[in-house]
Structures are given as structure tokens and as C-alpha cells.
Design a protein around this nucleic acid. Structure first.
Length: 405
DNA sequence: AACCGCGTCAACCGCTTCCTG
DNA sequence: TCAGGAAGCGGTTGACGCGGT
């Protein structure tokens, strides 16, 4: 051998372990906008897309400077950020996205129906978790694998012991893959047919690609998946968000755990995304549509010109209200009023964690003798929700939203 | 209160499969 | 056709939380 495969990344140069909210945000924001055509290249590209924050602005305001100088500094910092990127292995990004951040990932416990499906499919397919997952919308192979190893395996073992109290029989069914109530021989005879049937079902779609987890979903016929999750052992506040998946035309109700900030901030992001998906249900995940205004890196005369004509923009208050209303309207479809409050709480949490805390900045601002008020166009301090038409063109008026990559 | 054992699950590792030039 | 690279997949690990002692 000697010539082993090159490592996918320099492990000393990447962060490992649990993902932070900020990293999640970077990843989701990037994938929402640009998809994930190249996982390896993604981390390096993912950093600069975080919306310009009030905090970021204010930390640079140590004295009253001209707004141009300020923005020049900011732009310089952005370029530095771009170099830094998301310090994660591409593989890790992919995994995080597929198993956790994807909009159609269903959170929460498996329903009885889902468990039965897993058991049935496992009898047929064995440990082909991705294949099993392709028949359970919203469930990932990793999740199914975990559930199998932690719950279903034991469940079936106990069931076997109950149904076959005699030693000989229990020995026969000791193999989990053949341990369900139906016999192994029946399964082996019917296995190929069922497998072929399952493959056939998958191949009904137009895609000719091999059945990978994302494509499987894509290939599936449109269907509604209801929230059938049983209450979890540890009661969590769950909210269901009806998301038309970008991966498919499937309307999937994904569950987002409000009590967990990581879940919730993603939920809010994805709700943002879902807003436009309603109108663009055929969009691929690799071409997401929701877009936020950003500060361009390059010398963009349109941008600088626009700075001078900011008066045509809405006031920052109105802007913020609109942004919140935009989110609220998304949440409003699925959240109760109380849950909206929680979302706001979460947004505060997220802002705080990411250093975007507006409240904190308000104080800072006053302490800075209102310097930023005149210096920083607050229209840039929040993501600016755009109309689909603007998204299509990538411009607002003469302002080009996207710097060329 | 401290410790321990166990369950859960996100993330990692390394192999396999597929794609592309 | 083949080799190299990238994505996908399945097994495994380890951190964390919880309940029992």
C-alpha cells in the first residue's frame, strides 16, 4: 500500500467536536444561498456571509469617524474573515447539514409507525441505514441507526424472548436482523422482491442518479408527512414548521425544538427560507433563494453610491420591524403567540451569542454619544428581507447584491 | 452531595462507491 | 480504461444527561 488516501483535511487546522450556534449559522447561511456542490470547498467560503451586525459596527466606533472610513475598516475585516472561513472539515459540514441542519430533518422521537417501518425495512435491507432512511422522510440514516441500536434492537430482543420462551427458538432468532416476529425464511424468500419493489418505488422519479440520501428524497413522489412523533421522554417544547423542502417538492413538517437554541435558530433561519419556497417549490436546495443584503468586498461603486442615497431606504426602525414582521409572519403560520415570544427570546439569545445583541448595542450607542446614529446606516445592521423579484435579479435598484466570488 | 452506571445521540473514522478528466 | 478525488455510508466513539445508590 504505502500510498494511502490523502486526508480530506488537515486535522490540526480544523475544529472538531460539537458545533456552535455560530458555526451552524455560518453553514446554514451559506448553504441556503449557495447550496453544497462542493463540501470540501464550502468551509473556506462560508464565513463572510454572516450579516453585518450592529455589534460589529459599533465595536469599530471608538470615536466619531466618517462613515466611509468605518465601512472601509469593516470591509477590510470582512476580507480577513473570508480568509479564515468556517474552520471545519468539509466532511463534517456535510454531516452536520445532513443530520441536523437540513430543513426537512424531523426532530423528536420516532412514532410507532416509523419504528415499525424501520423494523420492516431492516428485515429487508439489513444495516443499509441510508436506504432505510430514504423511506422515512425527515429521518437521517444516523438517526435511524441510533434508534435501532438503542431502542429497536432491545425491543425486538425482548419481543423475541416473550414470543419464544423456549431456548432453542430464542437461539434461532438471536440475530437481530432476523429477530422480528416474522420468520427469517419468509423474509429471505421475499427479501429480493421487496427490495426490488422499494428500488422501483425510488426509481419512479426522474433522477437517474444512484440512491443517495438527498436524492432519494428528491426522487420521492410528493407527499405529506405529518408530525407523528410521540412525546419525548424529556418533554420539550416542540413546534412544527411546515417547510416545503428545497430538496424536493415534499411538504415536510419538521420539528424544531424551541427549548434548544441550536434547533431554534436554525428553525428561524429555515422559516425565513420557507417563505420563498412557497413560491418556488421547484427550487433545488443548491439554489436557494432567500437572500440578505451584505457589504460587498470589492470596490463596488454601486454600493458606495448607494451609501450616499440611503435616505431612500426605509428607516432602521421600519426596517427592523419589517424584518421581525417577516419572521413573525413565518412563525405565525405555525407558532402560537406564546411561541412567537419564545422565538423573539431565541433571536435575542442568538444575537447575543453571535455578538449581534441589539439591546446591548443600544446602550453602547448612547454611551458613544449617539455617534453611530449618524455614522452607520442601520439598514445594514440587519438582514434585509427581499422580494422574490429582487432575489431573481440580485439587485435592488442599481445596487448589486452579490459581489462576484 | 458525590459517585457510578447506563442510555442517548452527535460527530468522527475509514472504507466503499461513484464521478470525472 | 483507469486513476484520483469527492461524496456517501456504516461502524464506532465519546460527551453529556439522568436516575439510582
Amino acid at each position: 500500500m504505502g500510498k494511502g488516501r490523502a486526508p480530506c483535511c488537515d486535522k490540526t487546522q480544523v475544529i472538531r467536536g460539537p458545533w456552535s450556534s455560530a458555526e451552524d449559522l455560518k453553514l446554514v447561511t451559506f448553504i441556503q444561498k449557495h447550496g453544497h456542490e462542493n463540501w470540501r470547498a464550502l468551509p473556506k467560503q462560508a464565513d463572510w456571509r454572516i450579516p453585518v451586525s450592529k455589534w460589529e459596527m459599533n465595536t469599530q466606533i471608538t470615536e466619531r469617524v466618517t462613515r466611509v472610513e468605518q465601512l472601509k475598516t469593516l470591509r477590510k475585516k470582512r476580507v480577513e474573515d473570508q480568509r479564515e472561513g468556517l474552520l471545519r472539515c468539509g466532511k463534517s459540514c456535510r454531516l452536520r447539514w445532513i443530520n441536523y441542519l437540513r430543513p426537512d430533518v424531523k426532530r423528536g422521537s420516532f412514532s410507532k409507525e416509523e419504528e415499525d417501518t424501520v423494523i420492516t425495512l431492516h428485515q429487508t435491507l439489513g444495516n443499509k441505514w441510508s436506504k432505510i432512511a430514504s423511506h422515512l422522510p425527515g429521518r437521517t440514516d444516523n438517526e435511524i441507526k441510533n434508534v435501532w441500536n438503542t431502542h429497536l434492537k432491545k425491543k425486538l430482543t425482548l419481543k423475541d424472548e416473550d414470543e419464544s420462551p423456549h431456548g432453542d427458538e430464542s437461539k434461532e432468532s438471536s440475530s437481530i436482523s432476523s429477530s422480528s416476529s416474522s420468520s427469517c425464511t419468509i423474509m429471505s424468500s421475499g427479501k429480493r422482491n421487496l427490495e426490488m419493489e422499494l428500488d422501483h418505488q425510488k426509481n419512479q422519479g426522474s433522477s437517474t442518479k444512484r440512491p443517495r440520501i438527498t436524492e432519494n428524497v428528491k426522487d420521492s413522489s410528493p407527499r405529506e408527512v405529518s408530525n407523528q412523533c410521540r412525546p419525548t421522554n424529556k418533554p420539550k417544547e416542540l413546534s412544527s414548521s411546515s417547510i416545503s423542502s428545497n430538496n424536493s417538492n415534499i411538504t415536510i413538517s419538521s420539528q424544531v425544538d424551541i427549548s434548544r437554541p441550536e434547533d431554534d435558530h436554525i428553525g428561524s433561519l429555515l422559516n425565513f427560507r420557507a417563505q420563498y419556497d412557497v413560491h418556488n417549490s421547484s427550487e433545488e436546495v443548491s439554489k436557494p433563494e432567500e437572500i440578505t443584503a451584505e457589504i460587498p468586498f470589492e470596490s463596488d461603486y454601486d454600493f458606495w453610491n448607494m451609501l450616499d442615497s440611503l435616505s431612500s431606504f426605509q428607516s432602521n426602525e421600519v426596517q427592523l420591524e419589517n424584518a421581525e414582521a417577516c419572521q413573525s409572519s413565518n412563525f405565525g403560520d405555525v407558532y402560537s403567540t406564546g411561541e412567537e415570544d419564545q422565538n423573539k427570546k431565541w433571536l435575542r439569545y442568538l444575537e447575543n451569542e453571535l455578538g449581534l445583541d441589539a439591546t446591548k448595542d443600544e446602550n453602547q450607542e448612547s454611551s458613544l454619544n449617539n455617534a453611530s446614529e449618524t455614522l452607520v446606516p442601520e439598514s445594514f445592521q440587519y438582514e434585509i428581507p427581499l422580494k422574490p423579484a429582487e432575489l431573481q435579479s440580485g439587485t435592488i435598484g442599481n445596487f448589486h447584491l452579490w459581489p462576484s466570488l
